[in-house]
Design a binder for these strands. Structure first.
Lengths: 146, 146
DNA sequence: CTATAAATGCAATTTATTTGCATTTATAGA
DNA sequence: TCTATAAATGCAAATAAATTGCATTTATAG
């Protein structure tokens, strides 16, 4: 645990942000099983009274600004957040998702089919390239329920 | 124009929805350049007074429910919508995006590197499979501005 | 043409997000 | 270790976003 905590501290410092208990908690929460969480989900998962709703909003906004987090929409009107893992570096936990359109369950997919930046993409002159690949479908459980 | 309008009518009917002028307008709007639009963007792009805000909300929700639309988060807290194109059928306008993290400009990418459903994905038993692949980066313009 | 279920607009409500400000906390430098 | 200061936090209040109820209109099956 302490070893990963160290990681968050380095990450926050690198982003020019102060290291606070709340921020560490939020990052630990998101790192756990690479969860996708909404603001509401983050707030309620923190131990009761740990952080004000406003503070969660502000932390998330800041994290997203500096690129620690990315956001996803799963089609229920909520924005969810997850830790951003560098897609084109070897030692990251970069992964994809398989998401059930009905129940929103998320399965992690470790295999990445896009190992390198495609040449046609390089030509466009964008920097700090990254990608996100998600599969959507209806999970076996929801198929049976239908 | 009439020829594409026909397409929306078929699409709405297939989804069990009534065909109304507002719905056609919204679909035409989203089809134009395969735009990504927020609720606010959709409402303001419709000719003034064409539709109430509430109606836009209700249409979008319905469209998403029946799978006509999908939603995307670009990291500014807004949810944007686009027409859903079947990824694994030949005659769709399926495409990917290259999105600037700073200014949110969206470039369409016609090439799809994921031509078929990967075998390991098939094994998981999900139906109605689909995928979404987006690249993120900083566009040349924003690089110069930085 | 008519009946009916769905869609729409408007007003009002509820929920989500942001802002202002006083207080606390992290951290760079003495 | 202590201190100054800039950032982070909590609370109250304000603003904005999304939903609901209901009366009215509209699309469509028969």
């Amino acid at each position: 645990m302490a070893i990963t905590k160290e990681k968050w501290i380095i990450m926050l410092r690198a982003a020019g942000l102060k290291v606070t208990p709340i921020r560490i908690h939020i990052l630990e929460l998101l790192a756990k099983d690479h969860q996708l969480l909404s603001i509401e989900g983050i707030h309620s998962s923190l131990k009761k009274g740990t952080a004000d709703f406003v503070t969660v909003y502000r932390c998330i906004r800041k994290f997203e600004e500096v690129g620690i987090l990315t956001s996803v929409a799963l089609g229920d009107g909520l924005i969810r957040y997850e830790l951003r893992e560098d897609t084109h570096s070897k030692d990251s936990h970069h992964h994809h998702h398989l998401i059930c359109r009905i129940c929103k369950v998320v399965e992690l997919i470790q295999e990445c089919t896009i190992k390198q930046i495609p040449p046609w993409l390089k030509k466009l002159g964008y920097s700090e390239l990254d990608h996100r690949l998600d599969f959507f479908g209806v999970c076996p459980k929801c198929q049976r329920a239908a």
